[in-house]
Nucleic acid binder design. Structure first.
Lengths: 363, 363
DNA sequence: CAAACCTTCTTGACCGGTACAGAAGACGTG
DNA sequence: CACGTCTTCTGTACCGGTCAAGAAGGTTTG
């Protein structure tokens, strides 16, 4: 266990490669090699050097210095628009990050979480050292993302409008949303509510889907409209101002607490759908007899609530793995100086029918 | 929005402070000040420098170089024994990390997640640049933690045996466990099962509580035994080999699927208790009529399951905030060179009685 | 009017490593 | 024995910044 180090002598002269070199009587470079390129020197000498290092309390090359000299830090960033709290609260986000962490582990890369905040003294996207970054579901007007680009960092976009030069990983939100829409149409629903989440923006979103921010939100909405437009059904929408449960409930109430309420509600996410189920229960509306509810994501929540949620599955773990793999590949390519056309991964979605949806008005 | 950068010219000569200095016709230092110490130069000159920087596509001082020169990185680490997947799966861990992230946000510090793995080429705890680290619920035999110490990094121990020189944040696990134990004693239970979780180790843990790894596990077990020892009750224990739900179920079955099964089970965590509830239901054992179950943590899960869980609450968000605050304070102190006695925070716990516990054998 | 002071900018050293070319010795070879 | 080749180690030039002390000029002050 821990010994050889002590506290209270914080002011002790720092031990560097040179300290050890002097002690052993070799050049600084040889000591460096003893740590970083073991095959570049004889075994006995290396032993002596390592022993001296141990004795002097030297742990290994200073990471910051090494980062500067090698141009490599051993860490990659993940950038969110949302506050980081979200990264640990939302089940979809945690699933995603967990998969990334798992995929990254064998590479030895560490994961640094960044917000896209750019007020304040330190702007992480500009001031934190990293080898590359995942841009996850970010507001694309964000200055933080712009910093990342200008730093010429290897980037991968996830749940983000693809850009030609930047590798991206997305799920086929639009097809998934279409499948959900067809599902309720097939069940006979003709008065349909749509419930999005987002951080801000006007409400008449059906007039201009482009105004919805967030790539996924936009694509899912477009998918719904792909089907509903031609079918000529009556569509009503609400949009809550935030991603919390409270916001979802607020939106749900807007949609359900009225005489001409929809017979089916499509939700941007399972988390939102959960809010709808709660509100429906409170209003005494039976699901699925009087109301069909369809979520999105196939969040673990979807099978925990009653009735279980009909939803559109995306393989969030696969998304995380793909994102991590693409990023490491992009970093490797940048390091090697080779350039290849950016890869754009599109993962499939799949409608999962459970208990929360059913035919309209059954006797 | 993004413009001014392009891809494909990755090999373009790097723009550094010197490039800009030459362009504007000032010294490198002045350019540095333009970015890092705006009040050290005249406003018009600063404007010219910033304009030139913009034009040349210079984003700001290189983080790695700055880190070396200033001795500050702008990131702090969190070290786990468990795989990082755990950090995103376990509700207690995510709550903790979320609170840390929130507390850290205004300071501008980024959060780097590290595993304590020390095989492989890169050993994060040794090779990643950071200003300090939180050691969270780590196996104390871990070499990673030893590296952190030898690097003289400011550290804070969380859910870890306190060490004199190292600031720590803990919850009063032992008192909490005692309260839980008293609770079931008061309800008349005399045949009691204990269910721990852990990563490895022998099973006869009642003979030697010290062998239980994990500070919290150990303290909770000790708290239970504090009460049960003197009361002379019959105690049976099981210990699952891991932290997943499957392991919890396995341990629960060991305890419940036998004729002399306990009338009450105390669990190391709510996650474990959840497994017990499942197994009890499968075996047709009614909770709380035939079996009382007590969890620990007051995980959100505790109020979602039926019956709701009697448990010992710890304020996980407060723990996260305290940990982050203590760490930033410790870092500040280290930077200032001042030394003060290490602070040891102990947060309270509180028994929360809900539906899963009741008197033994009621008619 | 000279001494004391700002403000603004420059100079040189240093942070702690790594890359790369080359020197010195050991070894096989024709 | 001269020569090419390895292996092992050294010297020097970076990596891209920041720090601390000082110089140059303009202002206040006694």
């Amino acid at each position: 266990m821990s010994q050889g180090w002590r506290y209270g002598d914080a002011m002790a002269a720092r031990v560097t490669l040179q300290t050890i070199a002097d002690r052993v009587g070799v050049s600084r470079m040889t000591v460096s090699n003893a740590f970083s390129k073991p095959d570049q020197l004889s075994v006995p000498l290396r032993q002596r050097i390592l022993a001296a290092a141990q004795e002097l309390g030297y742990v290994g090359p200073d990471p910051a210095a090494r980062a500067l000299a090698k141009g490599t830090t051993g860490a990659v960033g993940v950038v969110f628009t949302h506050s980081l709290r979200f990264a640990f609260t939302d089940l979809v986000a945690t699933g995603f990050l967990g998969a990334i962490a798992e995929e990254l582990a064998p590479t030895g890369l560490s994961l640094t979480l960044l917000t896209s905040s750019d007020d304040g003294d330190i702007v992480p996207a500009r001031d934190v050292a990293m080898d590359g970054a995942l841009v996850y579901s970010c507001d694309w007007t964000s200055r933080a993302v712009d910093f990342l680009h200008r730093r010429r960092l290897p980037l991968v976009y996830v749940d983000q409008d693809p850009v030609d030069d930047i590798p991206s990983v997305n799920v086929d939100d639009r097809s998934g949303a279409r499948a959900a829409a067809r599902h309720v149409l097939d069940l006979g629903h003709r008065r349909i509510g749509l419930l999005l989440s987002g951080t801000h923006g006007p409400y008449g979103l059906l007039d201009d889907p482009g105004v919805v921010d967030g790539h996924s939100s936009r694509q899912r909405l477009l998918g719904w409209l792909d089907e509903f437009g031609p079918a000529g059904v009556e569509v009503m929408s609400a949009r809550q101002d935030g991603t919390g449960l409270e916001q979802a409930r607020w939106g749900a109430r807007l949609l359900l607490d009225r005489p001409d309420r929809p017979t089916a509600v499509l939700c941007f996410s399972d988390a939102v759908a959960y809010g709808v189920l709660q509100v429906a229960a409170e209003l005494g509306i039976e699901v699925p007899r009087q109301l069909s509810v369809v979520g999105f994501d196939d969040n673990p929540l979807a099978t925990q609530v009653r009735p279980t949620l009909t939803t559109v599955r995306q393989d969030i773990a696969a998304k995380g793995r793909a994102a991590a793999a693409t990023l490491t590949a992009t970093i490797a390519r940048a390091k090697a100086g080779t350039s290849a056309p950016a890869e754009h991964v599109l993962l499939p979605t799949e409608l999962v029918v459970r208990e929360s949806s059913g035919p309209v008005n059954p006797q």
